[in-house]
Nucleic acid binder design. Structure first.
Length: 695
DNA sequence: CATTAGCATGGAG
DNA sequence: CCTCCATGCTAAT
């Protein structure tokens, strides 16, 4: 308990300190325990008069902007009593609730205990508070850094199976307390304590997840669909040759099928704004944004967007600009599901201004609107012309949207369309799929990067080729393309396998958790993918730093270990729209393989890092903008490090890569995968066939 | 007349 | 057949 552990307990209220005979439960402390209070203090707390009684002479009293009521804002006791407004000031929860239609997030148990949980407060933040610039105050839950993950997210949930087992049988609030608060390990960042990813932000009275950014928000997230975690820690790895890996992953957006509110044709509404849509019976196929919209940020973009601080950026979605998007009309049509999944619901006909930060740190205010122009309507960003011009984008280029953590601010990157002449770009007005083969990567890693010469990698090139062959017709260079596609496909499958191997977290077997009838796995540590720096903080990182140079054989040895794992731990996942074989395979790997896979990943990374360390290419294309009034570019350090580019392109004869190294990792991955697949009696064709069974 | 805002239409999946 | 979305069309400014 939070109160004294001495023999005689006293009231937790320091201005009371009365001896406790029968402690009564007070507020939730940051330790996860409830403050033990005497009867009088507990009553005052229960009646919402604690601050009025005991904090009258302390600082921190402010007036509700709406009703003028005095609210104490300076203590943990009262932090659930008000919300901070972006425009400044505070508003009492009562006003906030009466002014807006607010319903509890169904992701959260409706237990009365949760009325005192910070996260519910976040969900209660009225639109008034988030329609201003994010980051100036508490961010809305849909922009906040996965506030709900703290409870539901596998990455964040660091609890023991016993506690979960108990809690799942107990009442939800107790589950929350037990699992996400009490049991959590505490760490300290700066002067703030947080518990397994939940950081208490004393300034904003918010609890935020800080350790890992998870893309899934609720239960029932299929393992195989779990996206990579883009965590860019404050420190880069500083180990010998390790200087950053240019890994970019085709990233699954935050478990979108769970985020989409009930889209029953009535458009977005506050009632349905919750990320969570569990038990709505929606299928992934219908509510997950197409993978062509999955956001991909390069390391460079990360660095630029985060101001060089390597803050966390949650990739949200991206879109290839159509002619009309990039045209003078200044309207960017947003993919509907992306808009509904990632942007705050529109409650007014005129929409609301959306502040988006570009790579230079410049804020653009775009009007986010909904057009009910037909049955389904569409979402548009208006006023994008200056922004697009600033970035010198045109049709065919890709804009990438993400969310800067922890502010929750929307950020926007872009990719120029590779290999497309201006005329082609002008003519390429149809935003078809990026690439069937890129899409076929499903959850796979895209070893995709910017090349030293500022061009984009083969994946993107193939994307463009694929765009040309609308209607399934191959264009003139189809032969070469076909070859490349086949090769890409093979790579992608391989990497898809690898991805499966990479998914497991870094330590311990998962705890199978049954929450609200849905199983999911909780790992003691989050799988860390896509961010090389993540390795600096764990034992695998130390493995990397030991400068062991694993050989392909070394890695291959990991695979038999994988095979020895007990396949009975496999679990059925729902809603995976990867091909069945691959899905199954990934399930197997993802759910049953633990340390071997981690080692494999570590080894691959190490191997790659070491193997490529003599490359000294800088993946820094000239992305300078026309207007750079603030000279932000200088403030955004260029990606000077030796980007270890896992974008193997063995067929690129003109590439200045170290062929042996690239082929080395290539062979490593392929051989490992082939071996693995052999052991699973699978062939590449099994997977590729199933991947292309679409009619 | 030019631009903007909003809706309609039709191709693609 | 349905949904999505690129873009055309037109009334309003």
């Amino acid at each position: 308990m939070a109160s004294s552990s001495s023999a005689v307990k006293v009231c937790f209220n320091s201005s009371c300190n009365q001896a406790l005979e029968v402690p009564r439960q007070g507020w939730l402390c940051r330790t996860g325990d409830f403050a033990d209070l005497c009867d009088r203090c507990a009553s005052a707390f229960k009646d919402g008069k604690f601050c009025d009684t005991y904090h009258l002479n302390t600082s921190g009293w402010r007036c509700c902007e709406s009703c003028g009521k005095q609210i104490h804002c300076g203590c943990i006791v009262s932090f659930q009593m008000f919300i901070l407004l972006d425009a400044g000031g505070i508003e009492c929860v009562k006003c906030a609730k009466t002014e807006y239609i607010l319903t509890p997030n169904p992701a959260w148990p409706s237990d009365p205990h949760f009325l005192h949980r910070p996260a519910e407060r976040i969900s209660d933040i009225p639109s008034k508070s988030w329609r201003s610039i994010a980051g100036s105050g508490p961010v809305p839950w849909w922009q906040a850094p996965s506030l709900f993950n703290a409870y539901k997210g596998r990455h964040e949930l660091q609890v023991t199976s016993s506690s979960l087992g108990q809690s799942t049988r107990g009442d939800p609030s107790e589950r929350f307390v037990n699992d996400s608060w009490r049991v959590s390990a505490h760490e300290t960042i700066g002067n703030k304590t947080f518990a397994s990813g939940i950081q208490y932000d004393g300034q904003h009275n918010l609890f935020k997840d800080v350790s890992y950014q998870s893309f899934f928000h609720t239960n029932a997230t299929p393992l195989a669909s779990l996206p990579a975690t883009f965590v860019l820690h404050n420190q880069k790895v500083e180990t010998g040759n390790v200087s950053g890996i240019h890994v970019k992953r085709l990233c699954t957006p935050p478990s979108v099928e769970k985020q989409c509110f009930n889209n029953n044709g009535s458009g977005p509404s506050l009632e349905n704004q919750a990320y969570n849509s569990k038990a709505r019976g929606e299928t992934r196929a219908h509510h997950q944004p197409l993978q062509r919209y999955w956001s991909q940020f390069t390391d460079q973009e990360y660095e630029q967007l985060s101001g060089g601080s390597y803050a966390k950026i949650t990739p949200l979605f991206e879109k290839v600009l159509s002619a009309s998007d990039a045209g003078k009309i200044g309207r960017l049509v947003l993919p509907k599901k992306c808009a509904e999944a990632f942007l705050a619901p529109i409650s007014q006909p005129e929409g609301y201004p959306l502040v988006v930060q570009d790579l230079k740190g410049k804020d653009w205010v775009l009007q986010y609107r909904f057009w009910p122009n037909n049955n389904s309507g569409m979402y548009v960003l208006e006023g994008v012309t200056p922004c697009i011009q600033s970035m010198q984008l045109q049709a065919g280029d890709t804009v990438t949207f993400g969310r800067l953590e922890p502010e929750g601010k929307l950020v926007m990157g872009f990719r120029k369309a590779p290999l497309a002449s201006s005329s082609e770009q002008g003519n390429e007005t149809t935003n078809t799929r990026i690439s069937a083969h890129v899409e076929s990567l499903k959850d796979g890693i895209v070893f995709n990067s910017m090349n030293p010469d500022g061009t984009w990698s083969e994946v993107d090139k193939i994307s463009i080729y694929a765009k040309r062959k609308k209607g399934g017709k191959m264009c003139s260079n189809s032969k070469k393309l076909k070859f490349k596609e086949e090769e890409m496909l093979q790579i992608s499958v391989t990497l898809g396998q690898l991805q499966g191997l990479l998914r497991p977290p870094l330590a311990n077997a998962p705890t199978i958790v049954l929450i609200e009838g849905v199983e999911f796995e909780d790992f003691q540590e989050a799988p860390i993918i896509g961010s090389p720096t993540a390795f600096s903080t764990d034992n695998v990182g130390s493995l990397c730093s030991t400068e062991i140079e694993p050989t392909p054989k070394h890695v291959e040895h990991m695979l038999p270990m994988i095979n020895r794992e007990n396949p009975e731990s496999l679990k059925t996942m729902e809603g995976i729209d990867a091909p069945a074989d691959l899905t199954h395979l990934e399930q197997q790997v993802g759910s049953s393989v633990k340390n071997p896979a981690q080692l494999l990943y570590a080894d691959v990374i190490c191997y790659t890092q070491i193997g490529n360390s003599n490359e000294n290419h800088t993946a820094a294309p000239d992305q300078s903008f026309e207007n750079d009034p603030c000279g932000e570019k200088s403030s955004c350090p260029t990606f000077k490090s030796q980007n270890i580019d896992l974008n193997m392109q063995p067929e690129r004869e003109e590439e200045p890569y170290s062929v042996s190294d690239s082929m080395g990792i290539m062979r490593l991955v392929q051989e490992s995968t082939e071996r693995f697949m052999k052991q699973h009696r699978l062939s590449v064709n099994d997977i590729t066939d199933s991947d292309h069974k679409k009619p």
